[in-house]
């Protein structure tokens, strides 16, 4: 049965509001976790800052350009943190057999499963990332036009799909193998490497990080559209498409695993 996007958004909104309400009722936990998340971001920034106290530039990338990349990666990694956190619990539901309980609703299974958890802590990262981008943008003297901002938003959203896709695929391995936590954890660690310009790597690893584990699409390629408008490689323009394609494939893979699983698990 066809359900419109509006229908799904309304349901998501409702679950979100309730979820936040119930989290607020554990106030001290909520506050401490949020402070912890902010600390993580500040610490990440401080180590970045310390590093560049010693070096004026890296491989032709200035401090503010690197800062831009850093902010870009923070923002594009926010959706996976906020919206798809339930992927971390997937293997537990699958082993215990509790996953079957998601299969009987008249709505999309993937949506229904992911909608259950919204990790509000990620919003701190979003704010921090946006702040970093704005600061770097101003310092770099980049023009502020509607087109630029539009580009920025489109490229941020599509870039965020890459990490979501990687995480979906990694989480879905639990439908086949037992140690999926390590796979998920490994993929999760990739995100730390997304903030560096791919040009620092040797050609072999450039290839790997572009086509095999496409983390270069989380920040590097999409950022070029804004940072180096004179020499944008084809891959940068393709990055929105690549984001969409990867997301779609990971969704299909996830659903395939879910269907296969519910068909066999007792």
């Amino acid at each position: 049965m066809h359900r419109s996007i509006g229908f799904y958004l309304r349901i998501y909104g409702k679950i979100l509001v309730q979820d936040i309400k119930s989290k607020m009722s554990y106030r001290s936990d909520f506050i401490i976790s949020t402070i912890g998340m902010i600390c993580t971001n500040i610490a990440g920034f401080v180590s970045f800052w310390i590093l560049f106290q010693n070096f004026p530039s890296v491989d032709g990338w200035s401090y503010y350009e690197m800062l831009f990349l850093y902010g870009f990666s923070l923002v594009s990694l926010t959706p996976v943190q906020c919206l798809f956190d339930n992927n971390w619990s997937l293997r537990i539901y699958v082993y215990s057999g509790d996953f079957i309980k998601y299969c009987f609703r008249p709505i999309n299974l993937f949506f229904y499963y992911q909608s259950e958890i919204f990790d509000i802590k990620g919003l701190g990262q979003l704010a921090f990332g946006i702040g970093t981008i704005v600061y770097a943008w101003a310092k770099l003297g980049l023009p502020v036009t509607v087109l630029m901002i539009l580009k920025m938003i489109v490229f941020l959203i599509t870039a965020s799909l890459i990490m979501i896709a990687l995480q979906n695929a990694a989480a879905a391995t639990c439908f086949w193998i037992q140690n999926s936590f390590y796979v998920l954890d490994l993929v999760f660690r990739f995100k730390d490497y997304a903030k560096y310009p791919i040009t620092i790597f040797s050609p072999v690893f450039r290839f790997i990080f572009t086509f095999l584990m496409p983390i270069a699409f989380i920040a590097y390629y999409p950022s070029l559209v804004i940072l180096r408008p004179d020499e944008i490689p084809l891959l940068s323009w393709l990055s929105p498409v690549i984001g969409l394609v990867f997301f779609f494939l990971s969704y299909k893979f996830w659903m395939y695993g879910a269907m296969k699983y519910s068909g066999t698990g007792s």
Partner: peptide, 27 residues
């Protein structure tokens, strides 16, 4: 027609709640 059927049926597992764990029942 799994989704269409889901509209017409209800399922209860004795020990696996399908409700939102953290939410009050009314929500």
């Amino acid at each position: 027609n799994r989704t269409k059927l889901a509209q017409e049926i209800g399922v209860v597992f004795g020990q696996r709640s399908q409700l939102w764990w953290a939410l009050p029942l009314i929500e």
